[in-house]
Design a protein around this nucleic acid. Structure first.
Lengths: 256, 256
DNA sequence: CCAAAAGTGTTAACCATACACCCATGA
DNA sequence: TCATGGGTGTATGGTTAACACTTTTGG
């Protein structure tokens, strides 16, 4: 398999092109069917699922490495990403690797640079579920979306990375607009509210939510409505990208 | 000089005991004479001043490495520290090293692991200025406190690390109690207010500040007052450590 | 025509801000 | 005794939270 050849190469010479002892991991959030989901990869050499991760090229910005990883796993570019925490516990690498599988990949020993301790930088991304086309890498055999509240067994400390990312995202809700990358172009107010509720894990007052979110001035109400689904057809909205970008840097100043 | 021997050793064999391509840098805040200060080291092999930094032992938690560095530079233990950002620009290492000085230290080439790109994790710490006893390391020739608003020339991107740390600290003021480690055991309300004002870089209303800070319930007013300095002797306060610790995790819920 | 979902409006509680007054003390 | 700085209290405006009513439309 081509992937195994790649890994063998990485194992042997990767330290010449990548930084050592440091990696990035991406928590890629998507929103679909009223559920907040994250993209996971089924680990090839260990039990459980893993976050999409990557290494940092020796001449590469760490932010670029995060975006590259996101693109490789979803095909998406120009997505808002942010680092939220560094995970540097000495014992975080207590991963049980299935040696048999490693050997099948053509790697004899387990003392190479890839087996050293890695400190990882956690990045989170918000993507449009429908535009993403997940793909796995050489260390995995599947790529799949999981409800963030119903996660499978995960390798190493990846479960806690997800927990921290979610907590961080919740805090961010009060400071940065969310939704542009998580929702389709046109969306209704109830849909936007549902997104916020799903992230926060609690319900919000319909009327107060609308007032506050409109007060930020980043939404434009369209002429047409979403008909045929609910008794009263709700208006469509879209983001005013100019104002949205402004709000991204200036914050939005309200409390949900 | 013993330091040069140490560096030679580090240069030759350091990669066996430390992680590669990753370091930490500490922004150590202190408060003295009404000024917010940070501890800097005069660089030995380059022009300008540097943040106290360190490497991460191969078996060492990254948080421990930060605390160890803080202790080595100030002698202080049990100080509240927090990572606030990772600096991973590819070009952040464009440091001009004075080769002559390197050679004096006994290092011939500049291709070793210490000259590779380093990604650094920024930590900030709040310490009691009077209890700290600054000391420099093998890469520096002096240790000195500087007013954070009047910094000298700094190496690499260290000036921007400081700027980011200060910004982060300001945001933290609304969420976490500050002062325990920055002030002496006993302090007056005006002193505490001055601390906040210095960090924020703006004045605060005396009465509102008192009401809010007392509202958090982390302060205990003492019987005695600070006499002889101001017309009306202000009360002394001390932190209620139990409540303080609580507020550290639960936040304090007010806006300055 | 009725139930369900969306649009619009009102009120009370709370918090932040601004400001006034009194008290203590050293010069 | 007076200027200065500290302790305590109050009014106001803005924001949040709670809640009521009207409008639309598919069954």
């Amino acid at each position: 398999m081509a992937f195994n050849q790649e890994i063998k190469q990485l194992f042997a010479k990767g330290h010449e092109s990548y930084l050592r002892n440091i990696s990035i991991d991406c928590i890629i959030f998507g929103f679909n069917a009223g559920e907040l989901k994250i993209l996971l990869l089924k680990a090839k050499f260990a039990r459980g699922w893993a976050l999409p991760g990557g290494l940092i090229g020796r001449e590469e910005d760490i932010d670029s490495a995060a975006h590259r990883t996101l693109e490789e796993r979803t095909g998406l570019v120009d997505i808002y990403m942010q680092q939220f925490k560094v995970f540097g516990q000495a014992d975080r690498a207590t991963q049980v690797v299935n040696k048999k599988l490693w050997e099948e990949a053509g790697i004899k020993n387990d003392k190479g640079w890839l087996f050293e301790r890695f400190i990882t930088v956690g990045y989170y991304a918000l993507v449009d579920f429908n535009k993403a086309t997940p793909s796995f890498d050489g260390f995995s055999t599947e790529a799949e979306w999981f409800n963030v509240y119903e996660l499978p067994e995960m390798i190493m400390d990846h479960a806690s990375l997800v927990a921290d990312a979610l907590e961080f995202l919740r805090l961010q809700l009060n400071y940065r607009p969310v939704g542009y990358s998580l929702l389709p172009e046109k969306f209704t107010m109830p849909e936007l509210q549902k997104l916020y509720e799903t992230i926060l894990g609690r319900t919000l007052d319909r009327r107060n939510f609308q007032r506050k979110i409109l007060g930020v001035g980043i939404l434009k109400r369209l002429k047409d409505r979403k008909v045929g689904v609910t008794p009263k057809a709700p208006y469509y909205y879209r983001f005013d990208m100019k104002k949205y970008q402004q709000a991204l840097s200036n914050g939005m100043g309200f409390q949900l």
